[in-house]
């Protein structure tokens, strides 16, 4: 990841600040940076979203394609994640440099979405054992400014909210051969229910306290973070320690509580903005990349 190098005194300043609940940019320990969310930014996708969280900039595109259901789950569709660390974000990602980080994030997303019920996969099934929708979720890192995981999960949720999958019908003739018919009306779509899609809250341990939405500088001061996926109802669906340090059991309990609280607030804010955008409909002025 784009690493920043800090002097010992700078780190100390950050650590003391976190202790006093006043971070370098004036935030408290549980405050997020100001986030901008926009959906439907790339027209060749079934759904897309762009999220800017401080200097972190994420673009997610969802493409729905037809595929065959997995053997273990014949009546469900599935999601595929791919994370591309573009060299736009940092020159270190050039060539294969970003691959490791990309796989790590993709694996984490699989884990977060592994919980049944996060997305209604049954609704993606067209024809049991034969056809289903596969949602390819492609995440692009445009800029890294700390707290990638949270920003990516917000963008994924927004993109899934924005996803529209064409309605299809299965016609069966007398001989039993099946035919798939696509609806003529391009606006005749199904939408996904994203109420239970979790968001990731990363809590970075700095000194004796933990902060949410760490900047790159703060990440450099943190030895270990706990990544928690929280649904809008406050249920935890995934937990993962990242970083090379270790955590006290007590602080893990505290972090889970904080994660639940912050996660709920995050979902409320996100849902509000998605609904607001939706209610504006076509009257909303699209900003895209010219903002």
């Amino acid at each position: 990841m784009a690493a920043v190098c800090l002097s010992e005194a700078e780190k100390l300043y950050i650590v003391h600040g976190v202790q006093e609940d006043l971070r370098v940019d004036g935030r408290g320990c549980e405050d997020y940076r100001c986030a901008e969310v926009e959906t439907d930014v790339v027209s060749n996708t079934s759904g897309s979203a762009r999220v800017k969280l401080g200097h972190t900039d994420i673009l997610v595109g969802v493409k729905a394609e037809m595929g065959t259901p997995k053997l273990e789950k014949p009546d469900e569709g599935y999601l595929e994640f791919f994370v591309d660390c573009s060299a736009n974000a940092t020159p270190e990602f050039e060539g294969r440099g970003g691959e490791e980080l990309g796989t790590e994030i993709a694996n984490t997303l699989y884990r977060v979405f592994s919980s049944e019920g996060s997305v209604d996969l049954k609704s993606l099934c067209i024809n049991p054992r034969e056809h289903c929708w596969v949602l390819y979720v492609d995440v692009l890192l445009l800029e890294c400014g700390g707290n990638l995981f949270d920003a990516i999960s917000i963008a994924v949720k927004a993109a899934l909210f924005n996803t529209r999958i064409p309605k299809v019908r299965v016609l069966e003739d007398e001989e039993g051969s099946k035919e798939i018919e696509l609806s003529d009306d391009p606006y005749d779509c199904i939408r996904l229910n994203v109420d239970d899609v979790p968001c990731i809250v990363t809590l970075s341990k700095i000194g004796y306290r933990h902060v949410v939405d760490a900047t790159l500088q703060e990440e450099a001061c943190s030895l270990a973070s706990l990544l928690i996926a929280v649904t809008s109802k406050g249920a935890l669906t995934c937990m993962k320690k990242i970083g090379k340090g270790s955590l006290d059991p007590e602080s893990i309990f505290e972090m889970m509580e904080t994660g639940k609280r912050v996660g709920k607030a995050l979902h409320i804010a996100l849902q509000k903005i998605l609904d607001e955008e939706e209610s504006l409909g076509t009257t909303r002025q699209k900003v895209g990349f010219l903002g």
């Binding site: 935030r27 408290g28 549980e30 405050d31 997020y32 100001c34 986030a35 901008e36 969310v37 926009e38 800017k52 949410v212 904080t258 609280r261 912050v262 607030a265 995050l266 409320i268 804010a269 996100l270 509000k272 903005i273 607001e276 955008e277 909303r284 002025q285 900003v287 010219l290 903002g291």
Partner: peptide
């Protein structure tokens, strides 16, 4: 306690 501010991007001059 937790403050999460989200907004739609606005084209700013």
């Amino acid at each position: 306690m937790a403050a999460v501010a989200m907004r739609l991007p606005v084209a700013r001059k």
